[in-house]
């Protein structure tokens, strides 16, 4: 009995810290809301807003969707969705190709600790720069069109892809490199026969995952004129035309889900 009681006194008291932590969290959340000037008149009309939204969703514009009737095919949601996909796909491809040298540059296995630090720093800077801001700048140089979207996604993807590629290269089995050293291979031969066969699957899987993210980004970037669905989306949103918004939203959900399913299926095959 005594031994047990003594031991109980030694028990670290964590609940005080936990309590303080929880109270702090709650205070912080309440504080976060206090800054939001709540628009009560909007709140009172939430029921009405919901009816307006649902009525719009019930009245999807199929001519607009397929680009038939009074609409040109190139104005239709289907075409714009394909453009959005094209922006995401080509952007991701460019990003992945550019990220490979960065991945090697940020990998301790390949270039050593010190150079890898520099490579990592460059990637952090690319990653930190918000996509929308990049697009805002690029739109001046490349115009209000899909090309800007492609370049934005391509450049922005380098940051995260480069980092993940470097991790993949650092996690691989190093013994084949030793074996290649033993047969007298130079650095390029080591990369070709020792590194690429090992990391190709990982790199493809990471890129597919990024494609998933970029499909969403491509939609969003359109709102500042970088091509695809975004421009029509923001136009419809400014006039709250829920029938048009709903039509576009349907396309977005289907597109994202389809890409998600294909990408995770292919990633499953790669492992």
């Amino acid at each position: 009995m005594n031994r047990a009681e003594e031991a109980l006194k030694r028990k670290p008291k964590r609940w005080v810290m936990n309590l303080i932590f929880f109270v702090a969290m709650i205070v912080a959340i309440v504080f976060s809301f206090s800054g939001s000037k709540i628009n009560w008149s909007r709140f009172r009309s939430i029921g009405h807003s919901l009816r307006v939204m649902l009525a719009g969703f019930a009245d999807l514009q199929w001519d607009f969707f397929f680009g038939t009737g009074i609409f040109q095919f190139k104005e239709g949601v289907v075409y714009l969705t394909l453009v959005t996909l094209a922006i995401a796909f080509i952007g991701t491809f460019i990003g992945a190709v550019l990220a490979i040298p960065f991945g090697f540059l940020a990998s301790q296995n390949i270039v050593g600790k010190h150079v890898a630090r520099i490579g990592e720093a460059i990637l952090v800077i690319i990653r930190v720069f918000p996509e929308i801001i990049l697009a805002l700048i690029l739109v001046k140089g490349f115009g209000m069109n899909a090309l800007t979207g492609v370049l934005t996604i391509g450049l922005h993807s380098i940051g995260m892809l480069g980092k993940l590629f470097a991790e993949a290269i650092d996690n691989m089995d190093k013994s084949p490199l030793e074996a290649l050293d033993a047969v007298g291979a130079n650095i390029w031969q080591k990369i070709r026969y020792g590194v690429i066969p090992q990391v190709a699957a990982d790199i493809s899987s990471i890129t597919l995952y990024r494609l998933d993210i970029n499909v969403r980004s491509a939609t969003v970037l359109g709102i500042i004129g970088a091509g695809g669905l975004g421009a029509s989306l923001i136009l419809a949103a400014e006039s709250w035309s829920w029938n048009i918004l709903g039509t576009i939203l349907l396309a977005i959900v289907v597109m994202v889900l389809v890409v998600d399913v294909i990408s995770s299926y292919l990633r499953g095959k790669l492992v």
Binding site: R216, S217, T219, V220, I223, L233, A237, L245, L249, I252, V253, V256, L257, D260
Partner: peptide
């Protein structure tokens, strides 16, 4: 599937 921007809209 819904991008955060559209949720915000």
């Amino acid at each position: 599937t819904i991008p955060a921007m559209i949720l915000a809209l």
